[in-house]
Amino acid sequence: MNKLALPLFMIVMAALPQVVSEYQVYLLTLTVIWAIMALSMGLVLGYIGQINLGQIAFVAIAAYASTLLRLNFGLSFWLAAPIALAVVVGIAAIVGLITLRLRGPFFILVMLAFAEIVRLIIANWQEVTNGPLGLRGIAPPEPIFGVSFASKTAFYYLALVVLVVSLAALLRLVRSKTGRMLVAVREDEILAEFVGIPIMRQKVTGLCISAFVAGLGGILLGPFLTILAPSQFTLFASVDMIVMVVVGGVGTLAGPIIGAAFLTYIPELLSFANHFRPILMGVVLIVVTLFAPQGILGLLRGFKRTLAREARDGQ
């Protein structure tokens, strides 16, 4: 991602609500929230090198923790959010210390079990979470500095700010020493350990950062949807995030955002086949893996190189 891409992205995304309908603003907000969650999965897939089917658990923990703090203790959104994020990071650190010693299918299965445990707790702890009925009537964030978030457009801009700040922070991270060490561990753990990189610490740090970003998406879900229920945090949600990353481009930061937009609007266009959405996600994943392993971003880069090559040949 070059230096002009992020400011241009901000300008375009900030201008869109002014020229589209209210329903399109809803879809844009949904896309932005999915993009935040997909970014967290992109960090795990592209920079830690693990497939995490339990990523949705961090989203669920943040969403329920922040909402319960607001509903049961009267905290404002702005006080509940950092507490919920701290809880998510703490749980991610504990889970990471246990699971990141595992590799391949063992890590995948344990994280899948972790996500299912979280979902079952939410579904069965009725005294706290209201069980399958979920938490309803979740209010938008309270006004801050005189800015109200009651309207769909205002909430969209809040979500967009969270996405842009997350993107900028992750961009700085992957270019830092920590980011380079994460890539080194992903590529060859034995060699990374040989040159003195603390492998376990780097993996846990990466998982905690990804959980924090996933939590950012989680704390926005409640106020956006006004309802939280266990059915929103199933295995398919983690799979959707993986598909978004793969479709957009693994190992990039722009890829998850492109994938989130693609997989928000394509099902919308195919709303008549909503019951077949899991099948469609599987088909998309197979097609992209076979014919565009570097995702949409890889196709765009290849097209750009082709145009540049033709321009040079024509001179």
Results as ranks from 00 to 15, higher is better:
163 L>E: 09
115 A>K: 12
58 F>K: 08
130 N>C: 01
163 L>C: 08
85 L>Y: 01
88 V>D: 01
50 Q>W: 02
79 L>R: 02
134 G>Q: 05
123 A>G: 11
116 E>C: 08
99 T>A: 15
93 A>P: 04
118 V>S: 14
88 V>R: 04
95 V>M: 09
117 I>Q: 10
156 Y>T: 07
149 F>C: 06
127 E>F: 05
160 L>W: 06
93 A>I: 15
127 E>G: 14
164 V>A: 15
100 L>R: 12
142 E>L: 00
139 A>V: 02
125 W>K: 02
97 L>H: 11
58 F>G: 11
146 G>Q: 07
127 E>H: 10
147 V>P: 00
165 V>K: 03
103 R>V: 11
103 R>P: 06
96 G>V: 06
90 G>F: 03
55 Q>M: 08
91 I>H: 04
151 S>N: 08
145 F>R: 00
85 L>V: 07
120 L>N: 13
141 P>S: 05
77 F>R: 03
57 A>H: 04
120 L>A: 13
56 I>E: 13
71 L>M: 14
121 I>W: 09
62 A>W: 02
126 Q>S: 13
51 I>E: 02
135 L>N: 07
147 V>R: 03
138 I>F: 08
115 A>Q: 10
139 A>R: 14
77 F>V: 02
130 N>T: 12
77 F>Q: 09
98 I>E: 05
144 I>K: 00
118 V>Q: 11
148 S>L: 00
67 T>S: 14
95 V>E: 01
66 S>Y: 00
114 F>T: 11
87 V>K: 00
136 R>G: 13
80 A>F: 03
62 A>L: 04
65 A>G: 05
161 V>S: 00
114 F>V: 15
57 A>V: 05
156 Y>C: 12
151 S>D: 15
57 A>L: 01
121 I>G: 13
116 E>F: 05
139 A>D: 01
92 A>D: 11
124 N>A: 03
112 L>M: 13
113 A>D: 11
141 P>W: 06
153 T>S: 12
105 P>V: 14
108 I>E: 11
104 G>F: 03
69 L>P: 08
101 R>L: 06
126 Q>I: 15
68 L>D: 04
62 A>C: 08
84 A>M: 01
50 Q>Y: 07
52 N>Q: 05
147 V>C: 04
153 T>I: 05
119 R>M: 07
96 G>H: 06
113 A>G: 15
102 L>I: 12
58 F>M: 14
128 V>G: 07
133 L>A: 14
51 I>F: 08
98 I>A: 15
140 P>S: 06
75 L>Y: 05
90 G>K: 02
50 Q>A: 11
151 S>P: 01
56 I>W: 05
146 G>K: 08
130 N>P: 02
143 P>F: 12
89 V>D: 09
67 T>K: 04
120 L>Y: 10
162 V>D: 01
91 I>A: 10
90 G>E: 02
157 Y>K: 07
79 L>P: 00
77 F>E: 05
142 E>N: 06
91 I>G: 04
150 A>Y: 09
102 L>T: 13
61 I>H: 06
68 L>N: 07
47 Y>A: 02
139 A>G: 04
87 V>M: 11
157 Y>S: 00
137 G>W: 12
131 G>L: 14
129 T>P: 09
86 A>V: 15
158 L>E: 01
103 R>S: 12
146 G>L: 06
133 L>K: 10
137 G>I: 10
164 V>Y: 04
107 F>D: 10
48 I>Q: 15
99 T>H: 10
81 A>H: 03
105 P>Y: 15
110 V>K: 09
